[in-house]
């Protein structure tokens, strides 16, 4: 079997300016995604407002690490990942992959070269596999797109190899998605993302649709694959215990903004942002003797259409002062590698 590089049609100059020791592999700068809310009438439609799903996100991923992105439902985690991977066009800001702006105009060859290196695993394993295609065709598709001149036997051999790596059998290749359980389907989705040997995989709540026992299997599989393939993960979840288990660094998101970003141990021990403190106090303890001092936040999270001025958390924050409602706090490095977006962080 020939090596992968022989099929690469692109010159590697594209990423030559990038130095893995100095710069993160993936970086977003002031990323915004606003969805227009249109007022429809018979003849015209007028944009009256915006849903600010992602509102100025600054993130970075270092090579080889797992960044956990956590936040409540509707805070823009999934939209962030979809914008990073070019499924959505950003309203403002940009995404840099290995120093290259992903949204600059580029040729199809360059675009495919980037797509080979950054992949995604989707949340719902029941919707992410085409019901009309055999598993063989599903996993073979990236080879068909990227290496059209690869002989068929080789494509098939590679598919079988990937299948065995994600813990599936040969004969599964000839089956259709509807015959698999949720966990097996998620394995197929992971196999499809792995096919092109990517460097970064965005995991958009990969286990939240699965049973708890299956969740553990998939998490272990992801961990083994990360070691085998030297992968970089961005792991999106709303389950704090899962995040604590898998990630090296954690970013907490609220209403389309990053509130706090720190290494996992640091974030769970020296929590700085009031929202993160409230969030962490909600983790259930599996021991009745431990007294839980939960912080109950007042009210609901504000609508992403009419976001509060200044800090988005100030209407529910017990430490809010006047400045919080006037100016948006920047995401600042309060300690080495510990970023907080708050006027009065607890340090």
């Amino acid at each position: 079997m020939r090596s992968f590089e022989e099929y690469e049609v692109i010159d590697t100059d594209l990423f030559s300016a990038w130095d893995p020791n100095k710069f993160p592999i993936l970086e977003t700068k002031n990323l915004k995604k606003w969805f227009p809310v249109a007022e429809q009438s018979l003849l015209y439609s007028k944009t009256v407002n915006f849903i600010k799903a992602v509102d100025g996100v600054n993130l970075f991923l270092n090579k080889g690490e797992t960044l956990g992105l956590v936040g409540e439902s509707g805070c823009g985690k999934s939209t962030t990942s979809k914008t990073i991977i070019k499924l959505e066009e950003p309203t403002e800001g940009s995404v840099y992959f290995k120093g290259i702006d992903m949204f600059q105009p580029m040729t199809r060859v360059e675009e495919l070269a980037i797509k080979r290196q950054i992949q995604m695993v989707f949340q719902d394993p029941y919707a992410s596999l085409n019901p009309r295609r055999m598993v063989l065709d599903i996993i073979k598709e990236p080879f068909d797109i990227h290496f059209a001149d690869m002989p068929y036997e080789e494509k098939e051999a590679r598919v079988l190899e990937i299948l065995s790596k994600v813990g599936l059998e040969d004969y599964h290749a000839l089956r259709y998605p509807h015959e698999f359980s949720g966990g097996q389907r998620q394995r197929i989705g992971i196999a499809r993302a792995l096919a092109m040997n990517p460097e970064v995989i965005l995991l958009d709540e990969p286990v939240s649709a699965l049973d708890v026992s299956v969740q553990a299997q998939i998490l272990n599989l992801l961990h083994d694959l990360q070691i085998d393939f030297k992968l970089t993960y961005m792991f999106i979840a709303h389950d704090l215990s899962v995040i604590k288990h898998v990630s090296d660094r954690v970013a907490v998101m609220y209403l389309g903004k990053i509130m706090e970003m720190a290494p996992t141990g640091e974030l769970f021990r020296n929590t700085a942002h009031p929202y993160t403190i409230a969030l962490l106090s909600a983790i259930p303890r599996p021991d009745p003797r431990i007294k839980m001092d939960r912080i109950i936040l007042e009210g609901d999270p504000p609508s992403p259409i009419n976001t509060p001025s200044g800090c988005p958390f100030h209407p529910r924050c017990w430490k809010a002062k006047e400045v919080c409602s006037q100016k948006q706090p920047p995401l600042e490095e309060v300690k080495p590698n510990h970023y907080v977006s708050c006027w009065f962080p607890e340090i």
Binding site: K82, I85, K86, L87, E111, L112, K115, R116, Q119, M120, F122, S128, N130, E141, P142, I145, H146, G189, R192, M196
Partner: peptide
Amino acid sequence: NAARVLGA
């Protein structure tokens, strides 16, 4: 979406 991510 997955097909678009793969570059189809």
